[in-house]
Amino acid sequence: MYHIAPTMLCADLFKMRESMELLDKLGIDWFHIDVMDGNFVPNFAFGTDFLRQMTTVGKSPFYLHLMAARPEEYVDLFAELGVEYYCFHYECTQNPFRLCQQIKKQGMKAAAALNPATPVQFLRDLIPYLDAVTLMSVEPGFSGQRFMEFTYQRIKELRALADGFKLLIEVDGGIDIEIAKKCIDAGCDVVVGGYFTLFQKGKSIEKNYETFRQAVRNR
C-alpha cells in the first residue's frame, strides 16, 4: 500500500476548511503540515493558533513536519494539539535519541527529516527509534522547487538501512506523477502531493487526487 500525503502549505489558505474536509472525504492517509520558524529555513508557516484550528477540522492523522530550530522545545505543545507524527529535522538537534524518547512519551510517533545534503547513513543507529523518515528532495523552506534526481538513490540507501524495521519513508518536494512512480519503485512508502499534483491551479482537488491516486497505485 502506497500513501499520498497532501502538503497543506500548497492549499488555498482562504479555503483551508473546505479543502481539508474534501481531502478527508477522499480518503487521504494523512495531512502533511509544514511548520517553519524563519530561522532554520527562510520562511514562516502555520503558527500554533492556525494549526489548532486545522486540527479541529481535519479528521485524518496529522504529520507535523517541523522545520525549526530546537525541536525538543515544542514536543509538548504539538502533542497537546493532537499531532500523530512529530517529524523533526535531524540537522536541528544534537540529541536525536532523547528527542525520539520525548516524542513517544507524549504518545506521538517519531519521525526525522533529512535535508538533501545530509547523508542517509547518519540515521543508521537512529532507525530503530523512528516510525518514519522524510527525505527532502528539495531544499526545505519553499514549495514549487524542482525535484533533485539523486533522491532516488537516497531512497534505495535508506530502504536498505531500514531492512527489518517497520519504517515509513516519505519523500517531500517537487513531486509530480512520474516522479512519484519512480520514488515508489525506489522504495518509498509516502509521496507528498503539492503544487505539481493535488493543488494544480485551474483543476479541482477531487480530479487531481483521483488522477494521482490511480497513477501511483496502478503504475
Rank of each mutant, 00 (worst) to 15 (best):
157 E>M: 09
161 L>E: 04
69 A>Y: 11
17 R>I: 03
172 D>H: 04
14 F>G: 01
40 F>K: 08
99 L>F: 07
107 G>E: 00
52 R>I: 00
175 I>K: 00
112 A>N: 03
46 F>R: 04
119 P>K: 00
13 L>T: 01
38 G>H: 13
91 E>C: 00
82 G>S: 13
67 M>D: 09
156 K>P: 03
38 G>P: 01
164 G>F: 13
59 K>P: 03
195 Y>N: 14
202 G>T: 05
129 Y>H: 11
46 F>N: 11
29 D>A: 10
40 F>H: 09
116 P>M: 01
180 A>G: 10
210 E>V: 14
16 M>E: 06
60 S>F: 06
83 V>C: 09
83 V>K: 00
75 V>F: 05
108 M>Y: 05
147 F>Q: 04
62 F>Q: 03
51 L>R: 00
182 K>F: 12
193 G>T: 08
152 Y>S: 02
162 A>E: 05
81 L>V: 09
181 K>F: 10
63 Y>W: 06
60 S>W: 01
72 E>P: 10
22 L>D: 00
214 Q>W: 09
154 R>L: 04
178 E>C: 02
53 Q>I: 07
78 F>A: 09
2 Y>S: 13
146 R>K: 15
75 V>R: 10
143 S>I: 00
87 C>I: 03
190 V>Q: 12
87 C>K: 01
141 G>E: 13
191 V>I: 12
102 Q>V: 02
29 D>I: 04
104 K>H: 01
177 I>S: 05
55 T>N: 09
190 V>S: 01
206 E>M: 06
36 M>C: 11
166 K>H: 15
13 L>E: 11
151 T>G: 06
84 E>W: 10
81 L>R: 05
117 A>K: 07
111 A>T: 04
209 Y>L: 02
63 Y>D: 14
214 Q>A: 15
218 N>T: 15
75 V>I: 06
104 K>Y: 06
108 M>A: 08
139 E>D: 03
136 M>R: 08
154 R>W: 07
5 A>L: 10
138 V>W: 02
212 F>S: 00
152 Y>C: 03
214 Q>R: 07
101 Q>C: 08
198 L>M: 05
120 V>Y: 05
122 F>G: 11
168 L>F: 12
101 Q>T: 04
98 R>Y: 15
124 R>L: 02
64 L>Y: 01
128 P>L: 11
90 Y>E: 14
100 C>Q: 01
56 T>L: 11
